[in-house]
Design a binder for these strands. Structure first.
Lengths: 215, 215, 215, 215
DNA sequence: AATGAATGAGGGTTCATTCAT
DNA sequence: TATGAATGAACCCTCATTCAT
């Protein structure tokens, strides 16, 4: 399925297309076995090429991981919904659902579950920087919701951490053959998380006191 | 800090005490660098002993991981709150908070973040079996809450998956030097998650339609 | 001497040629120091390559031993003389002489002196099976001799065991720098052993009563 | 069976008795798995003691092997028959038979099959020196036979090498549970070998020309 | 006399990486 | 572009040996 043999495009595109497939295959392998648990042979075999060939498309194993991180960050950024016709809560919900789809769907570059210690300091800096942009945008969505009254008063940073955590974790237990479809999981998770952040007291819920409940 | 020299107990206890410390140190290393990314030298050095000494207490590196999993499962089981004087939602909240404390606090054996492919098939079976018990007990708490009306009607399995996911993820971003204390994180996370599951409609929350809101 | 650099053949042959040299060098090392007493570094150094390179040609150290056993069995099989113009005794003598040359001469794969416990059960089964063919063919030669009257009536199995034992033992004391040439040793040993099996009473020999000879 | 617990003697004898058992157990293990293939734990377990305890009775693993060699050489020396009422051939036959019994029977110290490279140079010197005495005495027996006309004219050194080779090899294929008893094997082997050395032409035997046949 | 605990040295094996073809 | 061959570094693990008890 992932062999990159037959696609016919101009050479420059060929190359970047192959690279993309490589990143996806690598990311999938990394997700399954961890960075150190994945050998380049694993990846090469999945692609139907030799181990040495990989070095035509990536500088390094470490660099390969880095590229996955970067691609994943871009992918994540694209899932944020800021449709002004919706309130913040709904924007958040849609963003989270789209994000979940993006990390467990086919073509995912996501490698968030991985030990970040595998990157060099410099690489880690760049990755975190890029991921911060994503997180800050999501925080903005939360702030929008707080302002328009759809989300309860809370620490946006913590809220986003929590939401993304639950979202990212899905990659651990999601099985393509499982009972739930990707969309179902995404919708259900996003809704669950948003309920936790929705404004207004929830009758009998102890967390009211923490988040301040009503404005 | 973790050197195991001075404790004076009878030899049998010494041994099992050392083993316990070993598991904790190993689990911490595994959490940080992944299973394959952790070398036995790392662990040995942290303990101030030689690499060969470890084999006095564990059969294998793989077995070491297995033992961490088992200890972690026990630790998790102990966090479940079933105090009958509390409603299900509150039981759940306390359980989650305690669970979070147990996995990021000192003395944690937690290795849930790890690539499960590192265990042998047989080991994995045993671990999953044991972990299932924990998850099923938590699901029971959710069911209790649904019955007593404190938790909205939902799929308990999915609810627990989500809650544990968000909880487990904390190990990824929690930094001991960070702004939040362990207890704060535990309380806030647990509350947030419980709000998402609390019965009763949340004004303006789109997830109401999913979980059915009030019965 | 044993470096495998310069030979110019097509790549497929190169590979199997190298493998052959590897087996010979390994067999020689095993013979000298035993299986467990031989390190892969020893072999690699003799070949002038790095230890890791060996794994390009063999799966395992154990597999290396196994391959030596197999090659040795083939080599042994090729030494059996069944020339119908000769009587059984002479066939046996020539076979034994050729066999001795094959195990102590250059290019020998022989590893019979080794602890067989070093092979896996399955490997041992295969090796023994193959070696049995060789031994049974030699036994056939003995039977031929008994039939044509050149060899005394005896248990062919035991006779072959004994003859091969004495032959194999030569690998223990033979020194290339020694006083005897390989051919001399082979001839002398074979003759000695054959005399022991030749038909007809040997005057004053106590073994007459054991093997009966013809009355 | 080999546990050394209950025997009641005076302490000095206890000690040397234990040592003797230790040598036998070690020799047996060495014979089976080779020197390097035998771990001290193997030996200790067979004796029912801890690994460290062995160091009360031997200086070294290497020294343990050395002691086996020495004991084996003594044992071998004791098998030589020089009964002047017998001719040389019969003396030789009895010697060989006794020797074979001594190396495969219970209580054997024999380690001749082993890689001699496992000894230190000095130890090897001593062992070879001692073994030379044995071989030279056997050669003397052969010479006696040649003189009294019972053994054909031959190189005594080579004759003894061959005979001992065949004898030693028995340790490789002898199985206690096998079809032949130890005595049968010893008798048959000795006879076979002696037939090969007996004076007088063997009808139709090609080796006549080698050994000069009748004087 | 005996042993549990600890260790240094060394061996087998894997793997990312390079290079000539 | 692609790959077979080769390697050094690192890792897991074993084992002979020592020492305090």
């Amino acid at each position: 399925m992932a062999r990159w043999n037959k696609s016919v495009l101009n050479p420059e595109q060929q190359r970047s297309l192959k690279r993309e497939v490589l990143y996806q295959v690598a990311a999938a392998a990394f997700r399954r076995n961890g960075y150190h648990g994945t050998s380049l042979v694993d990846i090469a075999e999945t692609l139907g090429v030799s181990k040495a060939t990989l070095y035509y498309y990536v500088k390094n194993k470490q660099d390969l991981l880095f590229q996955c991180h970067m691609a994943a960050a871009d992918q994540a950024l694209a899932t944020i919904c800021t449709d002004p016709s919706l309130n913040g809560l709904e924007q958040l919900r849609r963003s989270l659902a789209a994000y979940i789809v993006s990390i467990i769907g086919e073509g995912s570059f996501s490698v968030v579950i991985l030990e970040e210690r595998s990157l060099s300091d410099e690489q880690l800096r760049v990755v975190i920087e890029k991921r911060d942009i994503f997180e800050r945008r999501l925080q903005d969505v939360v702030r929008t919701g707080v302002t328009d009254g759809s989300i309860l008063r809370c620490d946006p940073k913590f809220a986003v951490f929590s939401a993304l955590g639950a979202a990212n974790w899905v990659t651990k237990w999601h099985r393509p053959e499982g009972a739930w479809t990707i969309d179902e999981i995404a919708e259900a998770s996003a809704s669950l998380l948003c309920r936790g952040l929705a404004a207004g007291p929830v009758p009998g819920c102890p967390s009211n006191r923490l988040y301040g409940g009503q404005p």
